[in-house]
Every structure is written in C-alpha cells, then in structure tokens.
Design a protein around this nucleic acid. Structure first.
Lengths: 253, 253
DNA sequence: CGTAACCTTGAACGACTTCAACTCACGTGG
DNA sequence: CCACGTGAGTTGAAGTCGTTCAAGGTTACG
C-alpha cells in the first residue's frame, strides 16, 4: 500500500489573490452565490461579504489544508472538485467527502483541522478569516441560520456514507456513488445521462472503502449488464437509471 | 437477516412530562448542564431554558424518533444511552451514532428526520420545540455559537466512523470502539479501566459494519491476548491500555 | 427451575483483496 | 514521426478475512 504523500505547497502559492474586478459584482455572479454560506446575504449587502473574502486558486493535486493546520481560515468552493481525506500513520487513506461548487471547508471542533483538503481539478475558492466570518454572522443573522442548515446537510451526507460503508457491498457502493455524483450540483457538465467523474479510481476506492480493482470490476459489471456505458474513463453514461438505482439497493424494496 | 422492527410507541408515552420540582433548579443540577446546547446560557438565565423545555423519559428499546417524523421537536440527552439508526428497506441496519448524557438529537437539513432514535437503557431527555430554540438562540447568542461547535464535533465523529468503516479491519474496529466508549463522557460508571458497554453485540455489530459473531470473536481475541477482560458481557476491563491502542491501529506507527 | 434471548465458538463458504499481467492514453525525446 | 516510458485502468488467479450456517453455552427473569 505505498502511497506518495502530497507535500505542503508554498504558502504563497496557496493564498495568491486573483485580481479584483469590481467590488460586489464578483460575488453577485459567483457560482457559489446560492451556497449555504452566502445565500443568507442580500444582494445589497454583498460588499460586506466581498470585502472579507480572498480568492484562492489551486492546481490539480495541490494541497489546501494539511491535517493539524491551524483553523484560522475557512473556504467556500467556487468551482472545481476537491477531496477531504484522513490519513493513518501507516498510509491507509480514507476520503471523507468530495467537494464541489458551493461546498464549505472549515468546520472543526478545535483550533486545528483534522483532515487534508486537496484539489482534484483546477479549483477556485473563496477564503474567509474565521473571526471575520463571526463578524459577518453578527451582521447577517440569516447567514448563521443557513450555516446551521449546511452543518445539518454535511452530517446527513456523512451518515449516508457511513451506511454505505457499513452495510452495502462493492457493487452497491459503486452504484450509489454514481447516483451521488449525478445529484451533485455544481459538478461539471452533465446533460442527459452523462456523469462527469473527475476523480481517479484510487480516489473512488478510498472513498468507498474498496480497492481500485474492486471499483473497476464493479464498473465493468454495470457495463456488462448495460446499466452504464463508459464514454471515457472519466465520463459515465447512465443507460438505465432505474436499474442503476436498483443496483444501489436502496429504495422500492 | 431477520430483524424485528421496533414499532412506534404511543405518543402519549413519549412525551409524558415528569413532575417539575423547582423552576431553575432542575437545569442547574442537570447532568447535561455543560452540554454544548446548554452551557451557553448563564446560570441566571436558566429559567429561559427551563421554561422552554419538557422532560421526557424512555424505557429501554423505546423509540423516540422514527425515520420520516416531522422535525418539530429536538432533544438533549440527560442520562442513559441511545442509538441513532438508519434502516434499509431489506432490513439492513446501520447505527450512525450512540448518544449519551449531553448529546443532542435534532439536526436535520429537512423538515423531517432521516434516522430512528431509540433508547438502549432507561433514558431521560430534555425536549425543546424547534421554533422556541430559535428564540433562545436570539436571546442567548452564545448558545448559537456553541451549537455550531457541537455540529462540528458531530461531523468530526461521523468522519471518524467513516474512517473506521472504510479502512480498519474487524479487530481494529472493535478495539477502536472500546477506546471510544472509554472516552465517552456521561457514560455510566467507569472507574479505573472498567468500560460500561450498555449496548448488545448486535448494536456493536450494526455500528461497526460487522456481524455479531465477528464482534464476539474480536473480543475473544483481545481477551486471549490479555488486553482486556470481560467482567461480564456488558463490562470490559482494560488490562493493557497501550496494547489496546496498538490493536486499534492508529497512533505511533 | 425452565425458557428465551443473548453470546460464544467452530466449520464451510464467499466476497473482496492481493498479486500479477496486460492494455491504453499520453507525453517525451531520439 | 514513431519508439519508448510512464501512470492509470482493466482483467485474471490465488489468497484471506469476514460472513454464514450451525451448535452449544450463559444469563436473566418469570
């Protein structure tokens, strides 16, 4: 189980600001405008948000947060795909969540983070100083309300993953994962039955508690049963949504 | 995998109030006084909390919340042990979390709950109307702050469980579980190395994604290696904390 | 003191992992 | 322009760990 550990990039790289165009316009047209973090702020007040935020850009595989980092800054994903991972001392890796446009990074019960956050694709983020966010919460109580809503969503998703890992077999896990990707808002283009799969088989395996071989075999089985088609390695076409749902083994018993 | 599904108890049973003794005294001496929900309220303001809350008592195996129930009421565990479960149509069950004194029940992204909440032991709860809780948050901003802190703790715990289910083998899972129980504040008596295990082997299995046989075998193995001793089925004595930690396979690689 | 539920232990089976070989896409340099 | 190398993905065969099936033991309670 050898695995190359991503090293921390230069701090300068991580927090390199993009050029600002026009005070509130940037937030107004942000793909994450309707995210739980931002939607509590009225259009008229967007400059509050904008003034407190910095734009950050990451290249694929670049690390944003390393386990143990001080939790002084929080982030909202604007575009791209990221992963939250937990690494054991012996190299075992578990992906806790994939993050897409509108998703928040920064909840921790401590002064430090207990996970790594890495870019899968090119990523744009919005960075906030944690203390400044507290001020924003005071200014915009609606923001704090939807923040709680967001926390509940994250817990619900984590519990869904717990069920998948605890009680579903390999085929069901992979089918469930495809349905999950299909529902992800803010994920890249997916018209008709096409699902964009930005992550590698290794990432999928580390998310689902499986090896890459098992993931591959499950996809091949779904393909052989004409439930999906692999347009290319990172694009899955769903041929039979109903049978994919059945393969996930959830609803309509 | 036959499993008896717990039926909903009479609503009257669930929300039967206990006699109130003295307005604020009840909260002042509550075992959950220092819980994330309540500790944001100053002693002087405890009557606000008390006036908004109802005491609820559950017998072992009694159901508090059924998947799909309207989320109008939230709860704080005062004493006893509970489980949060998710049930698939085919009977597969996954325990999402065990809850003890001070733990909160009621986070949901919807208008309804997506889990079952059941008593394991005799349980005392504090019930709040959700809308009244919102009012309390307005009155006591510190309450909302520590509520966010609590949400972060829940997410962290869920992620820890995700890692356990995704990347640890049976022995490691059971060892991790014992360490978890040991750290649970508000769990029943545990002096020296004694761990109270209020739940059945079935519950442990459904929490760890294992069968009861595998749980039993793992405990027997830990016993054979003189790492633990089973005082009785529901009491584990830790003979070698260091080797138990090693068996969990986490720290000091 | 008997019964039922829970727990433990053993043996056979099966699902996923491990190990290994091969394919494919892509990029580099001769 | 094509040979080569590399990294990701797929597929096959063997091995292992946890499940399943089965039997026996223990505990609690009427």
């Amino acid at each position: 189980m050898e695995r190359q550990i991503t090293t921390r990039p230069d701090t300068g790289l991580r927090e390199r600001l993009l050029g600002t165009i026009n005070s509130d316009v940037a937030c107004l047209h942000c793909p994450a405008r309707t995210s739980d973090l931002c939607r509590g702020v009225k259009d008229d007040d967007l400059q509050d948000l904008f003034a407190s935020s910095n734009r950050v850009r990451l290249r694929p595989e670049e690390t944003l947060i390393l386990d143990g980092d001080a939790a002084g800054t929080v982030y909202n994903v604007i575009s791209g795909a990221m992963r939250l991972t937990r690494l054991a001392a012996d190299g075992r890796r578990q992906i806790l969540a994939f993050l897409f446009s509108g998703n928040f990074i920064g909840l921790t019960p401590d002064e430090s983070y207990h996970f790594n956050a890495e870019a899968i694709t090119e990523v744009e983020l919005c960075a906030f100083d944690r203390r400044r966010l507290e001020v924003l919460f005071k200014l915009h109580p609606e923001m704090e309300r939807s923040f709680r809503h967001m926390a509940a969503k994250i817990i619900d998703q984590a519990h869904e993953l717990v069920f998948t890992l605890g009680r579903r077999n390999a085929l069901e896990r992979v089918a469930t994962f495809l349905l999950y990707l299909q529902d992800v808002e803010g994920c890249t283009t997916r018209r008709d039955g096409m699902i964009a799969v930005p992550m590698t088989r290794t990432d999928i395996g580390d998310f689902l508690g499986l090896t890459i071989e098992t993931v591959s075999r499950a996809l091949s089985k779904l393909k052989a049963e004409r439930i999906i088609r692999l347009a290319d390695v990172h694009t899955v076409e769903v041929l039979s949504p109903a049978r994919l749902r059945a393969a996930a083994g959830v609803d309509e018993a």
